[in-house]
Structures are given as structure tokens and as C-alpha cells.
């Protein structure tokens, strides 16, 4: 059973479509890398699926236990967060917000959850440090811990390794793989790093302007890596 179904989704800014007639089904435990050039609507598609920007048409359905309020999201680096006064603990705990009841404070259970996730990502000793003082790699771990507080089913990542040094990005890939393999969390990640995308993921979504390939890595390697002009069957509108 699919966790996420997109049915002929279109997204537009002003009048121009950025995503047109896009469909896919995401199974539990998938590790999907979203690749493609700038301006093909990768981020817009993610935001559309998450409900951050409205869809022009089409439908996005979550099922198999995934609901709108237990989705993890790691957005592109936000320059405003660079000097934001917040401790690591405060940031991670804010991921538990949708689990909070009517009381204005977090309960013991939510704090435990935050601590467990910080521990899992090896940032527990940073709990009282300021988020702004951390290195890029550490900041991404904090944001990932926050996403894990929000969900244990599916995480969307928007270029998480952009700006990380090679060692930090290698660590980050290892972490994501661990979450995917050991905890069975579905991963959907936008990246420009095609090499690692092919190394780690089981499915590839390659976005061109209004044309999409979506399928297994093996299929992609055989006939997916065609150029933008290609109109082979795999590149027809809507992927499959």
C-alpha cells in the first residue's frame, strides 16, 4: 500500500506552471532521490506535496498511517536562522509540537522523544548550545532530529547537503541510510549529488521541465539518463 500518492499534480507561480501533470506513488521504506536541473520545480513539488504552497490542480493523498501532522521536513537552509537565538534543545523540541495536547507546555513524553532523537543523531551533548554557533553539519543534524520528532514514517529533505564539507556530507548520507534501513523511514530527498543519489537510493525521480522520470534505480540506469530532449516512453508526462 502506498504512503503517498500524487495524482496529476500541477503547481503554478503567478500564471506560469512550474510543475505540470505530475503523478507518482511512494511505498513505505522507499528512498527516493529527486534530481534535475534548477528551475524544473523540484522544491516547488516538495512544497506542494507538503501543503506549504497551494496546488493548482491534482491531488496529494497520504495513507498507510501517514497523516498531514506526522511528516518530517528539512527545508533548504534559511538565512534567517543563521543568527536566531535558540538552543539545540529548543529547536528539536519544536518538532514535537503536533503531539502536544491542549496544555501550553510540553509533557515529559515529548521531552523524552526529543532527547531520544538527539541521542540517535549524536547531538545530545549539544543540547544547551546555541543553534547559530554550530557548524553546518551539526545544524543539519539538529534539523533532522527535529524532523524525527515530528514523524517516524516519512521525511522530505530539500538539498540537505548543500554547503556541507565532504566529511560532513558523508556522515549525513550515512545517517539518512541508517534511518531508512533501520527505522524503515521513507526518504524523499532533493539533491544535486547524482553520484550519491545513485549509490544510496532505491528509486529516482528525475525532473525535466514538464517531463518526469520516476522508477527504480535499475530502470533509470538503463534508459533514464537521457537528455532533456528525449521523449522516450520513460520520459513521457507523468513518469510511469
Amino acid at each position: 500500500m502506498a504512503q503517498l500518492i500524487c495524482k496529476s499534480v500541477s503547481i503554478a507561480y503567478e500564471k506560469e506552471n512550474v510543475v505540470e501533470d505530475f503523478s507518482m506513488e511512494v511505498e513505505k521504506g522507499d528512498y527516493i532521490s529527486v534530481i534535475g536541473e534548477n528551475g524544473t520545480g523540484k522544491s516547488s513539488l516538495l512544497k506542494g506535496i507538503l501543503g506549504i504552497i497551494p496546488l493548482k490542480s491534482g491531488e496529494v493523498t497520504f495513507s498507510d498511517g501517514v497523516k498531514r501532522n506526522n511528516i518530517g521536513y528539512l527545508s533548504q537552509q534559511n538565512p534567517m536562522q543563521k543568527d536566531f537565538p535558540a538552543s539545540v534543545g529548543e529547536v528539536v523540541l519544536s518538532g514535537c509540537l503536533t503531539r502536544k495536547g491542549f496544555l501550553p507546555f510540553f509533557s515529559h513524553r515529548e521531552r523524552e522523544r526529543a532527547i531520544k532523537n538527539m541521542d540517535r543523531l549524536g547531538i545530545l551533548e549539544l543540547e544547551h548550545k546555541s543553534f547559530a554557533d554550530l557548524s553546518g553539519g551539526q545544524q543539519q543534524r539538529v534539523l533532522l532530529a527535529r524532523a524525527l520528532c515530528a514523524t517516524d514514517k516519512i521525511i522530505f529533505l530539500d538539498e540537505p547537503i548543500t554547503g556541507l564539507d565532504p566529511i560532513a556530507s558523508k556522515d549525513f548520507y550515512a545517517l539518512i541510510e541508517k534511518l531508512n534501513k533501520e527505522l524503515g523511514i521513507t526518504i524523499i530527498m532533493i539533491t544535486h549529488d547524482v553520484e550519491n543519489a545513485l549509490k544510496y537510493s532505491n528509486k529516482i525521480l528525475h525532473m525535466h521541465k514538464y517531463k518526469y522520470f520516476f522508477g527504480n534505480k535499475a530502470e533509470y540506469l538503463i534508459d533514464g539518463g537521457c537528455t532533456e530532449e528525449c521523449m522516450c516512453e520513460k520520459h513521457q508526462k507523468g513518469g510511469k
Partner: peptide, 23 residues
């Protein structure tokens, strides 16, 4: 303000994440 404190923090720190969580 005190009642909404945690929501206000989450929205101030990262509006898109809060939106994605369904807040």
C-alpha cells in the same frame, strides 16, 4: 502569548516546517 508560546517559537524559527507539520 504564554499559551501560544511554543507555536510562536516554531513559526518564528521556521515557518515552512511548521506548515509542513500541519500547524
Amino acid at each position: 502569548f504564554i499559551y501560544c508560546y511554543h507555536y510562536i517559537f516554531a513559526i518564528t524559527f521556521d515557518e515552512n516546517f511548521a506548515k509542513a507539520c500541519g500547524i
